[in-house]
Simulated scan of single mutants.
Amino acid sequence: MSSSLDFALRLADAADEITSARFRAQDLKVTRKPDRTPVTDADTATEDAIRALIAERYPDDEIAGEERGGQVGTGRTWLIDPIDGTKNFLRGVPAWATLISLVIDGQPVLGVVSAPALGKRWFAEANEGAYAEDGRKLSVSGVNSLSDAYVSTTDLGSWVEHHSREAYLRLVDACWESRAFGDFWQHCLVAEGVIDIAAEAIVNPWDVAGIGVIVKEAGGRFSDLKGVDTFLGGSALSTNGHLHDAALEKLAR
């Protein structure tokens, strides 16, 4: 484990302390951002704490996050989503996580996903494999036919606005089973080999930079909906690799 991954895991520990303490809190403060998405006091407190720790340890590194902004620059950039699944968090649904990734010269090199309410954590480093919180090495499924595949998305409504509802339903109709586990969780389930395809019509860089590392290190494929291996494409597709091209064909507009 590199010093950067070790540090990222310690950042996740710090985040878990804040988010767990505020989860289902009776005095949770919730506001709306200009795009009408919710933000809680836990989101901002968590990102601020992570930023402070990074600035102390790596003062020359860039930081970009969901709540405080920033851009991916040259050199080292930390990407932070303090609470991925804020709608779940504020409603008391335990499927939410802190996402932390490191990008070096435009290439994601590590990712940590910490979901304390689920008792789960996933992490990976480029060329070093992907692992769960108990040290178990992750591996994608061997399913090689869409008719046997398990597919998930976040919100069907997002496909109407950002891609094509009909295209996503073509994929659903071709698959064995569909659910909406949503956000980070579905991609991590692909890495675990529990489901086979996770597709999202709209994402931000901090949503998927680390997740792409985890999925690929577990033996899968990650891309945007055009098939480009990038965390900057504004959409996301994680698969076990066997099904990637077939899924892209169904999702084509």
Rank of each mutant, 00 (worst) to 15 (best):
S2A: 10
S3M: 13
D6W: 04
F7E: 02
A12F: 05
A21E: 15
R22T: 08
F23G: 03
R24T: 11
R24Q: 14
L28T: 07
K29Y: 15
T31V: 14
R32F: 13
P34M: 11
T37C: 05
P38L: 09
V39A: 14
V39L: 13
T40R: 04
D43F: 02
D43W: 03
T44C: 08
A45T: 09
E47A: 09
E47S: 07
E47M: 06
E47W: 00
R51A: 12
A52M: 09
I54V: 11
A55Q: 15
E56S: 11
P59H: 10
P59I: 11
D60N: 12
D60H: 10
A64N: 03
A64V: 06
A64K: 03
G65M: 05
E66K: 03
E66F: 00
G70E: 03
V72S: 13
G75W: 10
G75E: 13
R76A: 10
L79M: 08
P82F: 02
P82L: 06
G85P: 00
L90K: 07
R91N: 15
P94N: 08
W96C: 04
W96G: 00
T98R: 01
L102Q: 14
V103C: 02
V103A: 03
I104R: 09
Q107G: 07
P108S: 08
V109H: 03
V112M: 04
V112A: 07
A115W: 01
A115D: 06
W122N: 04
E125W: 02
E125D: 05
A126Y: 01
E128D: 12
A130N: 04
A132T: 08
A132H: 07
E133G: 15
K137G: 07
L138S: 02
S141I: 06
V143I: 15
S145P: 07
A149H: 03
V151E: 06
T153R: 05
T154D: 05
L156C: 08
S158L: 15
S158F: 14
V160I: 14
V160C: 10
H162V: 07
R165K: 14
E166I: 12
E166W: 11
E166K: 12
A167H: 07
A167L: 08
Y168L: 13
W176D: 15
W176H: 13
E177I: 14
S178H: 14
F181P: 00
D183Y: 14
W185H: 10
Q186R: 08
V190G: 04
E192Y: 04
G193L: 04
A198F: 05
A201V: 05
I202A: 12
V203Q: 00
P205L: 00
W206R: 00
D207M: 02
A209S: 11
G210K: 04
I211R: 01
V213C: 05
E217L: 01
A218W: 01
A218C: 07
A218S: 13
G219P: 03
S223N: 09
K226G: 12
D229T: 13
F231R: 03
L232C: 06
G233E: 08
G233P: 05
G234H: 06
G234F: 05
S235L: 08
A236P: 06
A236M: 09
L237A: 06
S238P: 04
S238E: 03
S238M: 05
H244C: 09
A246P: 02
A247W: 01
L251H: 01
A252G: 13
A252Y: 13
